[in-house]
């Protein structure tokens, strides 16, 4: 499968965040997206998933050549899109188990039946793989989970749902060294020709475990540079200033802007 983002402009509450973003991910590829805070990385992942607060101004998102921007969030998920969120949402009263079960069931065709025993085994295996602890299945979804547990729970869901394209938005933040390794291994195990991965991260350490085929640098709402491993190392050592200098990108924040009518001092 192919996920293609074409000249995408996206706004939130009248602020333009994505400004002509292009990206093409083939099944089996792993792409890393790096970039300064506030540059629109999460926006990209959320708009692909169909987050209700973001608005597409122009451009398109195509799955195997077909636009998905008119599809609902759940339809996109069932088409194979997955987003491990930067901040997973807590849903009190709904157990992790019931939730994942419903998510798996909704993917089955009408005449298929969930084989509960098999499902339980798969769920337990996935929990063990991620060292999630026994009680997790019956705890309420993300409620009271530690930062790292929430992240691992996202990967658990990914394992259970077998997506075709998965955005992992800062899956490494909040994970301790061992957990990072564990998540890295689990995601690497999921790699196949049927899975396109988009890793959003700030640090090299995640990419030590999950090797990307492409590394993109995103600044001010678009991808400004694409390369390989060498970009990661340089960003890790030097940050983003060199990219900006090289490409002549001005920092938007430093640009003078009007605060409306203010008395000016002379």
């Amino acid at each position: 499968m192919i996920l293609e983002i074409k000249d995408l402009y996206v706004s939130i509450e009248d602020n333009l965040i994505l400004k002509g973003l292009n990206l093409k991910v083939n099944g089996g590829e792993t792409h890393a997206i790096m970039g300064p805070n506030g540059t629109g990385k999460s926006t990209l992942a959320q708009i692909c998933m169909g987050h209700p607060s973001y608005k597409i101004e122009s451009g398109d998102i195509l799955l195997d050549g077909e636009s998905i921007i008119d599809k609902t969030v759940d339809e996109r998920s069932r088409l194979g899109l997955f987003l491990a969120m930067q901040n997973p949402i807590e849903v009190p009263g709904v157990t992790n188990f019931d939730f994942v079960k419903a998510a798996v069931q909704t993917r089955m065709s009408k005449d298929e039946h969930l084989r509960i025993g098999k499902f339980i085994l798969k769920f337990e295996k996935a929990s063990q793989d991620l060292k999630m602890g026994q009680g997790l299945a019956h705890r309420f979804l993300n409620q009271g989970f530690s930062g790292g547990e929430k992240k691992r729970n996202e990967i658990l869901q990914m394992k259970m749902l077998n997506p075709c394209f998965a955005f992992l938005d800062e899956i490494d933040s909040g994970l301790d060294v061992d957990a990072l390794k564990l998540v890295g291994q689990n995601v690497t195990e999921l790699k196949s020709n049927d899975l396109g991965l988009i890793l959003i991260t700030h640090y090299q350490r995640l990419l030590d475990y999950i090797t990307p085929d492409f590394v993109h640098i995103m600044i001010n709402g678009k991808i400004v540079k694409t390369g390989k491993d060498e970009l990661i190392k340089r960003i890790d050592q030097e940050g983003y200033d060199w990219v900006k200098k090289e490409l002549g990108i001005e920092d938007e924040d430093i640009k003078p802007y009007s605060l409306g009518v203010c008395p000016s001092k002379h």
């Binding site: 969030v73 759940d74 998920s77 849903v91 709904v94 419903a102 909704t106 993917r107």
Partner: peptide, 22 residues
């Protein structure tokens, strides 16, 4: 909460029921 459940493929009706069930 609704968005989160939808993003895992639950239909709007399923998601709302589950939240109420919560």
């Amino acid at each position: 909460q609704l968005y989160y459940l939808l993003s895992r493929g639950l239909t709007e009706q399923q998601a709302r029921s589950l939240i109420i069930f919560g």
